[in-house]
Amino acid sequence: MKDLNMLVTGVGGQGTILASDIIAEVGMRAGYDVKKSNVLGLAVRGGSVRSHVRWDPESVSAPMSSKGTVNYLISFEKLEAARNLSYLKQDGEVLVNNQEIPPVSVSAGDKAYPDINEIKKMTEKVARETYYFDGLATAEDLGSSRVLNVVILGAFSNFIDVDEKVWIDVISESVPPKFQELNKKAFQKGKKLVEGVDVE
């Protein structure tokens, strides 16, 4: 076991907070000390959301990671991945859900949403590897865009050496009983989105 810093980013309403809560809880049950800190800004939808999660086998001090120390940047949205790259550790890894949610400045036509190649160039400079996947399509295939967060957790679970049962238990306890089966499926589907990674 070693200490791990994770940063979950996305746009308000995408389910990032629950995802980061689940990562924190999984860490605690896997025997780590954990801390978590959200930056939400105004409690209105559509803003950037950033949740830090830190796991340490001994003890976590600050609830948020310093820049240049994040092992895994898990982004629910492309632009938000680019926005948070300075937190990434040299050779850290990035998971990007290929969704594009234009801010109002873009949809109103005042600014341009960065081109995917531009984003790729930015991540390549720091990340050991960036994994892009279409989590939303997977969630919608299962019948609900609301399980996007669990699909992404499934993808992320490939990177961490924690028993799958812990993930499934925590996820099941975090969603209403009637959605448990759907979320279990979402986790498994998500797991298949990213393959052939080094496990820590």
Binding site: V44, G46, S66, G68, N84
Partner: peptide, 20 residues
């Protein structure tokens, strides 16, 4: 000191809060 590396994020379009 962990090396905070400026990745040019400041040039990205901001996501200011809006009425829903």
């Amino acid at each position: 000191i962990p090396q905070p590396r400026d990745q040019g994020e400041d040039d990205l379009p901001e996501r200011s809060p809006v009425l829903c």
